[in-house]
Design a binder for these strands. Structure first.
Lengths: 132, 132
DNA sequence: AGGTTAAATAACCAAGTGGTTTAGTAAACG
DNA sequence: CGTTTACTAAACCACTTGGTTATTTAACCT
């Protein structure tokens, strides 16, 4: 239904996580909110550099910023993390389901020697699967 | 120890997942191996375009390719998926742990009105947490 | 008012991405 | 053998990314 929107959200989340600096920032924020200078401290990078990374994180919804005097404390949001996690889990679920099904099928073949090809789908693809 | 290498692997995995076409390919491969033309079919994109995406997926270790005559059947590997999942899970674990700890702390404060600030860490950051 | 601190913006750069078309390779097929 | 099939490689394009320095904004503190 909202496939395109979901796509955009996932794009942003995975893009945000695809950089070691940003992952380190996320990991740091998981332990508690922090200001931009606090976040920048561990890195050999200029402040605007960190600022740019934070904008990417903010655009993905992973990080939100509020204002407190001249500070802009950063806060890690949970939902985008959950969405990314959910996508991977679903892909893995499908993968494992197929694997289990194949495994059961092979076991069945071994028990009663039917040698039927009615359950195959993509021809040579399945042929490859049977050899692994 | 192998932090940099892990970084590179995670970079590649998240980068690979940060594109809707590549995610669709991964989702398709979760259901079973497929050739490049089979993978390209659902998309309004030239074959070399798909080929490039597959190279990104291959570089990340998410996809491996074997040879079968002139076909190059693609196969989804589980490990990089697990690594990406593991990283997110760990971040979320830390996030929730802190949340639970804060929650317990607030409950404790409410029970016995100590009003002690000895357990705070990053000053205004925690102050912000208390207001959410 | 003037100075300091926190952070964002602007302008710039090299390198990478995502797509194309055109051309090439390698194996099967008739 | 030549042709088709499946795919990769090369060259090119507009656009984005990740980084820099230099400049501004905004709020606080004398």
């Amino acid at each position: 239904m909202t496939a395109v929107i979901d796509d955009e959200r996932l794009d942003a989340a995975f893009t945000a996580l695809a950089d070691p600096t940003r992952r380190a920032i996320v990991a740091r924020l998981a332990r508690g909110d922090a200001t931009v200078t606090e976040l920048a401290a561990p890195f050999a990078m200029s402040m605007p550099g960190i600022s740019k990374h934070l904008r990417v994180l903010e655009r993905s919804g992973l990080v939100t910023r509020s204002r407190h005097a001249q500070f802009r404390p950063c806060h890690l949001e949970r939902e985008p993390l959950d969405e990314a996690l959910g996508w991977i889990e679903e892909a893995r679920r499908v993968w494992r389901e197929r694997f289990d099904k194949l495994d059961a099928h092979l076991r069945e073949l071994q028990r009663t020697d039917h040698t039927d090809r009615t359950t195959t789908t993509t021809d040579h693809a399945d042929q490859k699967e049977a050899t692994e």
